[in-house]
Nucleic acid binder design. Sequence first.
DNA 1: TATATAGTGTTTTTT
DNA 2: ACACTATATA
Length: 722
Amino acid sequence: MKKIDLTQDLNPQQAEAVLHQKGPLLIIAGAGSGKTRVITHRVAHLILELGVPSYNILAVTFTNKAAGEMKQRVEKILQQANFDLGLPLVATFHSFCVRILRADIDKLAIERSFTIYDDKDSLSLIKKIVKKMGLEEDINIKQVASYIDKAKNNLWTSADLRANSSYHLADKITQIYAEYQRELKAADGLDFGDLISRTVELFQKFPDVLDKYQERFKYIMVDEYQDTNEAQYVLTNLLAQKYRNLVVVGDDDQAIYSWRGANIQNILSFEDDFPEAKVVKLEQNYRSTQNILDAAWQVICKNSGRKEKKLWTEQGRGDLISLVECFSEVDEGERIIGQIEDLILERRARYRDFALLYRTNAQSRVLEEAFLRHGIPYQIIGGVKFYARKEVKDIIAYLRLLLNENDVVSLLRVINVPPRKIGEKTIETVQNFANTQGLSFWQALLRTEEIDSLGPQTKVAISRFVEVVLSLRKEASKLAVSSLVRQVIERSGYKKMLMAEATEENKDRMGNLEELLSVAKKYDQMDRPDGLLLFLEEVALVSDLDNMEEGKNGVILMTLHNAKGLEFPYVFVTGMEEELFPHFNSLDDAAALEEERRLCYVGMTRAKKKLFLTLARSRLIYGTTKNNEPSRFLLDISPDLLQGAFVGSLDAVSNYSTDDEYSQEPEYMDINAGDLVSHPTFGRGKVVSVQGGVATVSFDNDKYGVKRLALSVAPLEKEKDF
DNA sequence: TATATAGTGTTTTTT
DNA sequence: ACACTATATA
């Protein structure tokens, strides 16, 4: 083994955290303060200097991306030291729990090959139950889903949920929750919340199992601790209570997941939970310029109950923050692209150095269209997720059914996909038969011959479907995963259905299934059918963020939530308007507004070199045009940090506009795509497109190229002769 | 009884 | 882009 200095280049606070040996430690890590570095170096320090076996160390994160990065960096340090005695376990909360449950969940009378239900699966199960209970009229399914989710995050039983609800349908919701849990268990299915809460249940009911893991994971680290919910908090504390070597890292200013049950109190009261805890604050920032940090601080300091901290950097003030005020959402896209192209010319930045962040996924559409118009490469993260697409989910449902015949959600999803004349009535009849005979739905399907009320054609249709599943199930233990997936696509009739009509849409869907096949290939070398189980696990737990192509040279578009933990040289926080950001649904709730503020802080602190804040004075939302005020967050930033503040001019036009001009309906010139125009500065040009009061004009003089001009202010004239 | 088709509404954020 | 609904047709 080679000796390496793990505290080299660390500041005193970082070094203190890295050298921490035993007992609880709270690391308050401001944005860009070298947090990952501290965690990885501390892991290496435990292993290399203190001789702790890797096997005894656990690091928990929230995203696969963070876990992967951490794993890689630890591996690199250990390699440098020529250490080759294994790596510590780095996992997300969810994958960690799956691991434990696969080993011991049979103790809770659930199959170890359980199926993981995503939120869509659980929604369809809730729907089925609501229907069964005849409550469709009075119950909002999504609302019930969120109540159930909340209950699980808080480790509530249905009785607890009842006690904690004042809603007038609380009794009904409580019943649905109880029934949902019963059905989930019968299906050997676990939803996301269950992954955590069942693990807690296992630990609480079987102290020997808990003890096994306490002995194994003597050193525990939890990243993004401010985002833990009650269930994750209890889980962490159970695991850590024996040896108390718990290091939690987080930043209360970056808590943005309360809507998913995260409880900011977990980090704020760590010192009460562990009075012997040491606390380290990391306030030196290595990412951004001082201007960016100051502006971000001016936004976040308005929140109450923060752990006071103020980030600083040695990197100097840097550029001012650009405030880009646009006429419309279309204009916003165009102006952002103008800025990107300017910077690429001036500073030789690449497309991948830019990120566009937005509050809601819906905003991505218009921005995407702008990138398409200009032929600029881009990557959208999130939105409609790959694994959530219909055709992908359908094939996955077949695969799940092969491993778990009790999985009713998957069964009901595919029983008539492609259409095989097994409709609603038939399903109802079979379900009734199953209920009276005390059978599962699948078992009932196997005995349809005994159901007198079904017609002969229907019985044939069912037995054909059953045959397909049974024969594929036999293959599952023989074939490599990708071959099996191919078999499913073909023998289910899915391929035939898509090939029947060669529309663009169907070609796309086939393409998506090919992509699914290529993911499946990764599991071909594994034992069967374990490979299939692991493939389905990846599909259930992976997020779109994990599929971000690191090497691709394209501008990145994502929600502010997705951007946490990432950094980019140039960041645009878009849609800085009241009712959009802060979002409409947060306006009457002080706590929600504080979270919006934190979200803004997270977005701003992603920027390394330059930050752009953009807003549209008019925006089309669900078919109606809204003229929202500039976001209150913009008003919190002092003007001397800003450039281009509220001048309301487009880059090609030097006219100043007052707020008054905006309140009037702008008078657009009669200019359309294809028209020839002239401009006093840029000369002659041709109009490429007109949208949202903005004309895109391609000027004859190559020096000016393509410009975007607001029709209400640009001194454009229509050319009459050619 | 099952299916095809057209029309409508949805969306705040997601492991 | 998807889910859901209403309606016509086999």
